[in-house]
């Protein structure tokens, strides 16, 4: 299918070089951070660590993992992500599908679209949110972390636009075959939408994985913090601890410091994303539209 001219070959080479350079520039900070996370604090404080750890130590990681809290927090984060992403995906699909219909087919469409866009722009702030959570009895519960933003409007809008861009024939053909709305959504639309679902699903996963603030706000008991909240608590007051008298911390400071602590925190939080990402990515690179119409 692709016949190659000389110009295209040159283009390909140049393209590869450019892309590689950009990727390299994106990769170096992460390598630098990785090196810092495994380095002794004296080298880090002296700014000598670049791309290879100096005075190799795993102290920063041990500090975070050493007690049972890490794994408990990890488990809660997984629980939150599975629940959160599942709810988000379901809500996005069932919201985006009706809203992708034209006004002729779904006269109330614009009203509901406005209903959602409004929430994107206006919010009531933390205080009433907290009061609501308390009155619903959700404080200290995992549901406080997954229910509030169950319809992420930006992602839903992306998904909706994907649905709209699908060729009309697919649905019409199915409708002629007598398929109902749910059937069409379930057996015709979903398979076609895999790449875009993977995209918005990824965004949702990343959101739930990275958010630490809601955990700190709504969990009364530190034993119920999700991972990022737990990691955050480890380091936010690191500097203040120094000011306090009589601390066991001081011997620890020889082996790690705020910078190495942050760096290891980043990786502990990043690992699951790096595991999930390539898995999800499989779906990005496979175009499916025509396949489903023909098949």
């Amino acid at each position: 299918m692709h016949f190659r001219t000389r110009g295209q070959k040159i283009f390909n080479v140049v393209n590869y070089i450019l892309v590689t350079l950009v990727c390299l520039s994106c990769l170096l900070p992460i390598i630098n951070t990785l090196a810092i996370s495994f380095s002794a604090p004296s080298y880090v404080a002296a700014g000598q660590v670049y791309f290879w750890p100096l005075g190799f130590t795993t102290q920063s990681y041990e500090f975070a993992i050493s007690n049972g809290k890490f794994f408990r927090a990890f488990g809660i984060a997984i629980e939150r992500c599975v629940l959160g992403v599942s709810i988000n995906l379901l809500m996005m699909i069932t919201t985006a599908y009706p809203l992708s219909k034209s006004k002729d087919k779904f006269p109330s469409r614009n009203f509901f679209m406005g209903f959602y866009v409004f929430t994107m722009l206006f919010g009531g702030g933390l205080v009433p949110w907290y009061i609501l959570m308390r009155n619903l009895g959700l404080l200290n519960s995992i549901w406080a972390l997954v229910l509030p933003l169950s319809v992420p409007v930006s992602s839903m809008a992306i998904l909706m636009n994907f649905m709209r861009s699908l060729p009309q024939e697919i649905e019409e053909a199915a409708a002629i075959d007598g398929a109902g709305n749910f059937r069409i959504l379930w057996s015709i639309m979903l398979p076609v939408l895999t790449p875009s679902l993977a995209t918005v699903g990824l965004f949702s996963f990343v959101y739930h994985w990275n958010d630490w603030f809601q955990g700190a706000l709504f969990m009364n008991n530190p034993n119920r913090y999700p991972l990022q909240t737990y990691l955050q608590t480890l380091l936010t007051n690191f500097r203040d601890l120094l000011r306090q008298s009589g601390s066991d911390y001081y011997s620890l400071l020889q082996r790690m410091n705020e910078q190495t602590g942050r760096a290891s925190q980043l990786f502990l939080g990043l690992v699951p994303i790096l595991v999930v990402y390539p898995f999800v990515q499989k779906y990005f690179t496979t175009g499916l539209v025509m396949g489903s119409v023909k098949g």
């Binding site: 599975v82 629940l83 992403v85 599942s86 709810i87 995906l89 379901l90 699909i93 379930w186 057996s187 979903l190 398979p191 939408l193 895999t194 679902l197 699903g201």
Partner: peptide, 12 residues
């Protein structure tokens, strides 16, 4: 995607 959604439902 369908498998994914079914799985999601079950997991929830």
């Amino acid at each position: 995607a369908r498998k994914l959604v079914s799985m999601a439902l079950a997991l929830i």
